[in-house]
């Protein structure tokens, strides 16, 4: 049975991320942690949410988490499946997506994301997979949620490459580039919820998960952390939320022989 006393930080992160989505959202889902969160939302408080994967599957409802963005089940359970050019032109560029949900290899305090290279672009120390759909997801969705586990090598003072644009240098940088969408409005980590400061756009801790200290948030983050004047405590997972997540992961594990995020 669901044991509420041994919730892992990753489970807390996924559930906190799921809570940020609403029944009316049309959500462009990245693979990995975002995919788990979006499907937990669909299986709990937001059964009407529209989940879209960049493979062209619109309104999908997979029983297990896909290993790739193009798994067959996404198509079989979708309301419709469109071509990839149509996906990016009519649906994403056309402004029909309310939330883009992204992960990050490197993130800075203004929500700029790097998933391209560690080190110099021409002579990288590590060549990462690259942006895929993210550069346009970050600017075409009405808002962007980011989810990642906290670590000093991931949450850095300066990212090595601007794969996708968040708030740039902060302030009104998006507006100056003619980008009229909101950009990153929420960062969900395994320790806390962060929201951009209304003026500077710097991510600020607004809620810490149960048992997490300010010291822990700081020592796993590469920049000097700002805390909101009033920092809430994130409500712990409910039995329903935790059961939905664990059952989803158990089904996924049985299907792929590998644990989903």
């Amino acid at each position: 049975m669901t044991d509420l006393s041994n919730v892992t930080p990753t489970e807390m992160m996924t559930i906190a991320a799921a809570r940020a989505l609403s029944n009316d959202d049309v959500c462009f889902v990245g693979i990995g942690a975002p995919s788990a969160a979006c499907n937990v939302a669909r299986l709990t408080h937001a059964p009407g949410i529209t989940l879209i994967y960049e493979s062209g599957t619109i309104g999908t409802a997979p029983d297990v988490l896909p290993l790739s963005i193009g798994d067959g089940e996404l198509c079989e359970t979708a309301v419709t499946t469109v071509s990839v050019p149509e996906m990016f032109r009519y649906w994403l560029q056309g402004g029909r997506i309310s939330v883009g949900f992204l992960g990050a290899a490197q993130l800075d305090r203004f929500g700029n994301i790097n998933t391209t290279v560690i080190g110099d672009y021409r002579h990288p120390k590590v060549r990462l997979p690259g942006g895929g759909g993210a550069p346009e997801i970050a600017t075409s969705c009405r808002q962007v949620f980011i989810t990642m586990k906290q670590a000093t090598r991931g949450m850095v003072e300066k990212i090595d490459f601007y794969t996708s644009f968040g708030h740039g240098e902060g302030g009104d940088h998006r507006k100056r580039l003619g980008i009229d969408t909101e950009g990153p409005t929420l960062l969900i980590t395994d320790l806390a919820l962060w929201k951009p400061d209304p003026d500077t756009k710097e991510f600020t801790v607004v809620s810490m998960h149960p048992g997490v200290t300010r010291e822990r948030v700081q020592e796993t983050c590469g920049w000097k952390v700002r805390f909101a004047e009033r920092v809430e405590e994130t409500p712990p997972p409910s039995k329903q939320e935790l059961t939905a997540l664990r059952e989803l992961q158990a089904r996924t594990e049985r299907a792929h022989g590998k644990k989903g995020n």
């Binding site: 550069p135 794969t163 740039g168 580039l177």
Partner: peptide, 12 residues
């Protein structure tokens, strides 16, 4: 298309 806004790829 409407793309690459603020993205590093257009510099490289």
């Amino acid at each position: 298309f409407r793309g690459y806004r603020g993205a590093g790829l257009k510099d490289v």
